[in-house]
């Protein structure tokens, strides 16, 4: 479960001064649900997800992830999430197996259990001999699989995906989508950010439209379309954003 309440983030920038990246964002994402944060570039999606993943401290508001406060129990939160974004890369000089095992160890997993878990994940993701290859020698698709194994190694109840398909080809992007659907099927809480309407339409049970740091609308894809009397999510999104501008 993810519960964000009045989350805000202010950055101090030498050039631009005070920058309000996120302003009083509140939403809830339940287990077995995929919640999509939909917004244009620079809308505040990444900052919101980074606050939930404890990478950034909120300037105001609170959030609880898997029952733990993101500020006072940051370690406990990180132990219960799998975070994947276009910016979370792999260590090129480690093999795929070393990579996943490293994060498993950091999650406190013991060697025997870790070995079984890595083998299970690699079998599921169809990573064969590539498991022993250095990550800088793998293809983009193979690297993406290793990243997925890395986020899942400790079997977290909450998954946070920040534009995970950015820069991927159609096949690799489809694999990620299937992976997210699988997470939902396993009862995990899934928070997903994107600016690609088709992905959000296909995946998300509920959608929050974020613009200039504020959550302007929330609901199911169908609900948003009816509320704004539009035939597509894209048109509804444009209506929401224009009304909020």
């Amino acid at each position: 479960m993810i519960e964000a309440s009045g989350l805000s983030k202010v950055f101090r920038d030498r050039r631009r001064g005070r920058v309000q990246a996120v302003e009083a964002v509140s939403f809830t994402c339940r287990p077995g649900e995929v919640y999509g944060l939909l917004g244009a570039n620079g809308a505040g999606k990444t900052t919101t997800l980074r606050m939930l993943a404890t990478l950034l401290r909120p300037s105001a508001g609170t959030a609880r992830v898997a029952g733990h406060d993101v500020q006072s129990e940051a370690g406990a939160v990180r132990a219960r999430i799998g975070f994947l974004s276009a910016a979370t890369a792999l260590y090129g000089r480690l093999t795929a197996r070393e990579q996943v095992a490293y994060f498993g160890r950091l999650h406190g997993m013991q060697d025997a259990r870790l070995r079984d878990r890595v083998n299970e994940l690699f079998a599921w993701l169809e990573l064969g001999p590539e498991a022993e290859a250095r990550c800088d020698q793998l293809s983009t698709g193979q690297r993406q699989k290793v990243s997925l194994a890395r986020t899942l190694v400790h079997d977290p109840p909450v998954m946070i995906f920040d534009e995970p398909t950015m820069g991927l080809d159609v096949l690799a992007a489809r694999a990620i989508m299937r992976f997210i659907q699988n997470c939902r099927a396993r009862g995990k809480t899934v928070l997903f950010s994107s600016h690609v309407m088709s992905e959000v339409e296909r995946l998300c049970d509920r959608v929050g439209i974020i613009h200039r740091g504020r959550l302007l609308a929330e609901g199911t894809v169908g609900g948003l379309q009816s509320a704004y009397r539009e035939a597509s999510l894209e048109d509804a999104f444009v209506r929401v954003v224009e009304a909020g501008a």
Partner: peptide, 14 residues
């Protein structure tokens, strides 16, 4: 630069 620091910071290592 390689984007691995963000990956590391999402792990429970303090």
């Amino acid at each position: 630069e390689r984007g691995t620091l963000e990956t590391l910071l999402t792990s429970p290592v303090d």
